[in-house]
């Protein structure tokens, strides 16, 4: 079942009196299936955040339509808001309130019964490894903890659909790794996750399906494996071998099929000890480059480099 359906969604911003209007999102169509982690990839300014803002009621589409959880975006925004959790790019809880009070306030806004709030708050703190920071003001938490608490707050009312906008941007490697484990855990619980990221390795590890958006238009949408197959027309076989003096050499051969390529590369290494044979698939980064014609570095531009984006877990 599709939990989000988007049809010809467009957002045009008027940028100034004598300037042409900006088509931030330009007639995109896609669907997100229930229970999947859906990756929405693109460089800065591609339209990722604008799409999230439209789907969560923070911006009105110029044209096009969408349904979220079976409800029409044009007419049912308050009901949609009640059933979604949103984690914006910036951790935006209240500096003055403690970790627990921030969670309790989130639950108050969403009508979680009073009797449940304390228990649910403690449960979320434990799950996000923040129990020790229960009474610490949000301002005093580390960046990674702030991010984790912001996600916890978005989950406080148990939404079946969670929007995560660039969740690991600016985090150190360990915090980013912990967060990815938490996101992977959400899928196991059946929460549908709509994830925007400019870290291709992150999307490759976490997402069931990936959409790539560039300049407001979708250029690809499929599973990571299918995108890899599409981007690579012929299989590549890599053989690592060594001679009698232990000089190691690696050769790659592209063939019509894996068997033919393997035969060719083995013939080329005759008389040497074969150490390893691998078939190679392109990384999502290579797929991105091939599909968009952009350099992969544009995904990291203006975001402070790779930082927490190194997908180490």
């Amino acid at each position: 079942m599709d939990i989000i359906q988007v049809s010809q969604l467009t957002k045009i911003y008027q940028t100034g009196k004598d300037k042409p209007p900006l088509r931030a999102v330009d007639g995109i169509d896609f669907a997100v299936r229930e229970g999947e982690v859906f990756g929405f990839l693109g460089p800065n300014g591609a339209g990722k955040t604008t799409t999230i803002r439209m789907l969560t009621g923070l911006a009105r589409p110029t044209t096009g339509s969408a349904s979220v959880l079976g409800l029409d975006l044009a007419t049912d925004i308050p009901r949609i808001k009640k059933q979604i959790g949103v984690v914006p790019e910036q951790s935006n809880l209240y500096d003055e309130l403690s970790a627990l009070d921030n969670l309790v306030f989130a639950m108050q806004l969403y009508g979680v019964p009073r009797a449940e709030r304390q228990t649910r708050g403690e449960e979320l703190l434990a799950r996000f490894r923040l129990s020790e920071k229960r009474d610490a003001p949000f301002a005093k938490l580390s960046r990674g903890m702030k991010r984790a608490l912001t996600i916890a707050a978005a989950l406080a009312h148990r939404p079946p659909l969670l929007f995560l906008d660039e969740p690991t941007t600016g985090l150190d490697v360990m915090s980013a790794r912990n967060l990815r484990q938490m996101i992977a855990g959400l899928r196991k619980e059946g929460v549908t996750v709509f994830l925007t990221t400019h870290y291709l390795e992150e999307a490759e590890r976490l997402c069931d399906r990936v959409a790539i958006i560039v300049k407001g238009r979708l250029v690809a949408l499929d599973t990571v494996a299918e995108l890899q197959s599409t981007a690579q027309s012929k299989p590549i076989v890599e053989v690592t071998s060594a001679d009698d003096s232990n000089n190691i050499e690696t050769r790659r051969i592209e063939g019509d099929d894996v068997a033919a390529a393997t035969r060719t590369v083995l013939a080329q290494t005759e008389g040497r000890r074969v150490l390893a044979i691998n078939t190679l698939r392109p990384t999502l980064e290579e797929v991105f480059v091939k599909l968009t014609g952009l350099r992969a570095e544009v995904m990291l531009a203006e975001k402070g480099g790779k930082g927490g984006g190194n997908a180490g877990g």
Binding site: T56, G57, L58, P78, R79, K81, K82, V86, P88, Q90, N92, L93, Y94, D95, A106, L109, Y110, G111, A153
Partner: peptide
């Protein structure tokens, strides 16, 4: 400025 108002704009209230 700090983005916290967005939390309220996302809440299920008018």
């Amino acid at each position: 400025r700090i983005g916290a108002l967005e939390r309220l704009l996302l809440a299920p209230i008018r």
